[in-house]
């Protein structure tokens, strides 16, 4: 498996498990964790595959800091994607 173009982390102290990010994610690479957080929610998590770093989940998420979206640093991106660093937005 090659390194995905994007990556995300989710702060489960902030995530309320609304599931909007899971629903909106174009490559469907987010999911709700089966475990409960200490606030009683199933927080979102990255499945580990397929993130394009498009950032849609960030804008659909109502919590200011719950989601951080990453993209492969340019050099790595060039290596991984043959120089085509797509931006979805």
């Amino acid at each position: 498996m090659g390194q995905a173009r994007g990556n995300i982390t989710i702060d489960i102290e902030e995530c309320k498990g609304c599931g909007l990010c899971v629903e909106c994610c174009p490559p469907k690479c987010l999911e709700l964790a089966p475990e409960l957080s200490r606030y009683g929610a199933h927080p979102a998590r990255y499945s580990g595959e397929g993130c394009t770093g498009c950032g849609i989940c960030f804008y659909c998420c109502p919590e200011p800091g719950a989601i951080i979206v990453y993209r492969l640093a340019p050099l790595k991106a060039v290596a991984a994607q043959g120089g085509d660093h797509a931006t979805a937005l």
Binding site: T9, I10, E35, S37, G55, F58, P64, G65, R71
Partner: peptide, 27 residues
């Protein structure tokens, strides 16, 4: 896995990535 802190995929390290969207400094 204990559900506290950052819920990154255990196998998906953020090494080599740069942040493109995160909490605004206006918050």
């Amino acid at each position: 896995r204990e559900l506290v802190g950052i819920n990154a995929h255990p196998e998906a390290s953020t090494d080599g990535y740069e942040v493109v969207h995160s909490k605004s400094e206006v918050f």
